[in-house]
Design a protein around this nucleic acid. Structure first.
Length: 512
RNA sequence: GCUCGAUUCGUCUAACGGUUAGGACGGCAGAUUCUCAUUCUGCAAAUAAGAGUUCGAUUCUCUUAUCGAGUACCA
C-alpha cells in the first residue's frame, strides 16, 4: 500500500435498474474525494451478471451523473487509458487471472451443479446446520482438490460446467483497515469459498472482476457501500494471492441510507410508499413500471447533491449550504459517519427552497414563462421575470411559480370562499368603492407613492387597515394571500386595478 | 442461527476524557407585515441500559438490548 500515489477512484455500478440515491451518494463521495485530491474519477460498468442486465440502465446512470454535475474522467463514454470500461467487454482478461490462482493453489475447479448445491444446502439446514462451501466440504465435493488432474481435464474437455472457487484459508485472522471504521479483524473460518469465475457464461463474478479491474486500472481508493464490508476479507486475500498487496487500494465503507420510516435500507419501492423520489431521474422499467425522480419533481441538482452530501458526512462546521466546489474543498473521509442515515424528505424540500431563492429573477422568469404560455397566458419574458422576482421567497419548487403568479396575469375567475367570508362585508365593500375612486385619480399606480398615501387615507378615515387591505386583495387576486398588494397593482396597472375592483363588486355583490 | 458493523433531540448531526451536550430540518409560541410566505426572537426536544477504568465519562473497556448489513454460479 504505497502512499503518495495518484488518487484514482471508481464508481462501479451494476446496470440492473435505476441508480437510487444511495448509489448517487456513493458516486458523489467518490467524485468529491477524487477532485479534492486532484485525482481521477472513473465510471466502470459492472455487467458481469448476464441474467440481471436491464436495457437502458447504463444510459440512465450516465444521465443521472451528468444531471448531478458529477463529471467522469474515464469511463464507457469518454474512454481512457484502461478502456474498455464495461466488464462485459473485458471478459477475455479475467480467465487468465482465475487460472493464475488455480495454479498457485489459491483457487480450484468445482463441478457441482447449482441444483446439487441447493439440495445440499436445504438438507444441511433441515438438520439444523448452516451450509458453507468451505474447507470442511471442498475435499468431499466434485472439485479439483479431490479429483485427479486427468479427470479434471477430461471433465472440462467433455464440456461439463465448472466454476473456479477461492480456496479460503482455514483459521487465519485477516487484519484489515477501513478509512472510516478503523481496524477490523475477522477469522477466515467464518468465510466460505466464493465463486470467482463461471464457465457457463465465461464471466467472472463481482469479486474477481472487481479486484482485477481495480488493480489494472490503478485504483488507489475504493469507496463503496457498507454492504461490501463482509466481502472485504476476501478482497484482501485476493490481493495477497495475486501478489498485489503493495498496490492494494485503501478501503472506505460508507454507511447505508435508511428508510424515512420503519426499518431497513432505502429501497426502490419506498418512493411510491412515502410519496418522495428515491431516484435522481424518472425511471421507466422495461416492464413499463414508472418511478418518480428528483429532477422531474422539481428538485434543482445543486439542492439534490447538497442534501445528499450531508447525509452521512458533515464538514465539521455549521455551514449547510455548499455548492459543488465548496463540497470538494470541504470533503474528507474522516468526517463520514459510521452509522446509517435515515433519509428526510422535509429537509430535501428545505434545501430546494434555499437554492430556488438563490436563483436570479432572470432564471426564474425563464422557468415561469413557458408555464404561463402553457396556460394560454400571453406575456413577455420581462413581465415573467418581474412576477417571479416578487414571489420567489414563497416557492419551494419551480412549479410553485405558476399558481403564485397566475392572478398577476389574469383576473380571478373565482374568489376564495374563506377569504370572502372573512372580509367581503358591506362596510368594506362600500369603502373599497371609495378607494377605487381615489385610485382612479392617479395617472398611474406606483407602489412607492400610492402605498403610503392610501395608508394615510385609511388612517384618516379611521378604517381598519387589515379589513380594507384584504378586501382590496380579494378584489385583485381572489384570495387574501400573496406579495405586497400595491406592487401587484403597479404590476397590473391602473386600468386593470380599477376594472378588477368593479368586476369583483359586480360578481360578489355588496357584501353583508 | 452465524459473522461483521452501528447506537447523541422525531430526523441529519457537533462535541475525538472536563461544555448549562451545540447547530440544522420539522414542531410550538411570539415579533414584523395589508394577507400568506419570508425574516427575526424564543420554547420544547437527546447521550439505549447496566457494570467497570478514571479525580472526572457522550467520548475508553465489557455485558445486555436494539438496529443494520452479509451469509448466491447477484452486484
Amino acid at each position: 500500500m504505497s502512499e503518495n500515489r495518484r488518487v484514482r477512484v471508481r464508481f462501479a455500478p451494476s446496470p440492473t435498474g435505476a441508480l437510487h440515491i444511495g448509489g448517487v451518494r456513493t458516486a458523489l463521495y467518490n467524485y468529491l474525494f477524487a477532485r479534492r485530491h486532484g485525482g481521477d474519477f472513473i465510471l466502470r460498468i459492472e455487467d458481469t451478471d448476464s441474467q440481471r442486465f436491464v436495457p437502458g440502465a447504463e444510459a440512465y446512470i450516465i444521465e443521472a451523473l451528468k444531471w448531478c454535475g458529477i463529471e467522469v474522467d474515464e469511463g464507457v463514454e469518454q474512454g481512457g487509458p484502461h478502456a474498455p470500461y464495461r466488464q462485459s467487454e473485458r471478459k477475455d482478461i479475467y480467465l487468465k487471472y482465475a487460472m493464475q490462482l488455480v495454479e498457485s493453489g489459491d483457487a480450484y475447479y468445482a463441478f457441482d451443479s447449482a441444483e446439487a448445491l441447493d439440495a445440499l444446502r436445504k438438507q444441511t439446514e433441515q438438520q439444523g446446520g448452516t451450509f458453507a462451501y468451505n474447507h470442511s466440504v471442498r475435499t468431499q465435493l466434485d472439485t479439483s482438490l479431490r479429483l485427479s488432474a486427468d479427470e479434471v481435464r477430461s471433465r472440462i474437455e467433455r464440456g461439463d460446467q465448472w466454476v473456479i472457487r477461492f480456496k479460503m484459508p482455514e483459521n487465519e485472522n485477516v487484519e484489515m483497515d477501513d478509512l472510516i471504521r478503523g481496524h477490523i479483524t475477522i477469522n477466515t473460518s467464518t468465510l466460505d469459498d466464493k465463486v470467482l469465475y463461471k464457465s457457463a457464461d465465461a464471466l467472472p463474478t463481482y469479486h474477481l472482476a472487481n479486484i482485477v479491474d481495480d488493480h489494472l486500472m490503478e485504483i488507489s481508493h475504493v469507496i463503496r457501500g457498507e454492504e461490501w464490508l463482509p466481502s472485504l476479507p476476501l478482497h484482501y486475500l485476493l490481493y495477497r494471492a495475486f501478489g498485489w498487496t503493495d498496490t492494494q487500494p485503501r478501503f472506505a465503507h460508507l454507511p447505508l441510507l435508511l428508510k424515512p420510516q420503519g426499518q431497513g435500507k432505502l429501497s426502490k419501492r419506498d418512493g411510491d410508499k412515502f410519496g418522495f423520489p428515491v431516484f435522481p431521474l424518472r425511471w421507466v422499467a422495461p416492464d413499463g413500471e414508472a418511478a418518480m425522480g428528483y429532477r422531474e419533481e422539481g428538485y434543482l441538482p445543486e439542492a439534490f447533491i447538497n442534501m445528499l452530501a450531508l447525509l452521512g458526512w458533515n464538514p465539521g462546521t455549521e455551514q449547510e449550504l455548499f455548492d459543488m466546489n465548496q463540497l470538494i474543498e470541504a470533503f474528507s473521509l474522516e468526517k463520514v459517519s459510521k452509522s446509517g442515515a435515515r433519509f428526510n424528505p422535509d429537509k430535501a424540500k428545505w434545501f430546494n427552497s434555499q437554492y430556488l431563492r438563490r436563483k436570479s429573477d432572470d432564471e426564474l422568469g425563464q422557468m415561469l414563462l413557458p408555464m404561463l404560455k402553457a396556460e394560454g397566458i400571453d406575456t413577455t419574458l420581462q413581465r415573467a421575470v418581474r412576477a417571479a422576482g416578487m414571489i420567489k421567497e414563497r416557492a419551494t419548487f419551480p412549479a410553485d411559480l405558476l399558481p403564485l403568479t397566475r392572478q398577476m396575469f389574469v383576473e380571478p375567475e373565482q374568489y376564495d370562499e374563506k377569504s370572502v367570508a372573512k372580509f367581503w362585508k358591506a362596510d368594506n365593500v362600500t369603502r373599497l368603492g371609495e378607494l377605487a375612486d381615489k385610485l382612479a385619480g392617479y395617472s398611474a399606480i406606483e407602489a412607492a407613492t400610492v402605498e403610503p398615501e392610501v395608508h394615510q387615507w385609511i388612517v384618516d378615515r379611521q378604517y381598519s387597515m387589515g379589513q380594507m387591505m384584504n378586501t382590496l386583495r380579494i378584489a385583485i387576486l381572489g384570495i387574501s394571500q400573496g406579495p405586497s398588494i400595491f406592487e401587484i397593482c403597479e404590476f397590473i396597472g391602473k386600468d386593470d386595478t380599477i376594472r378588477r375592483i368593479a368586476n369583483a363588486i359586480g360578481r360578489l355583490g355588496k357584501g353583508k
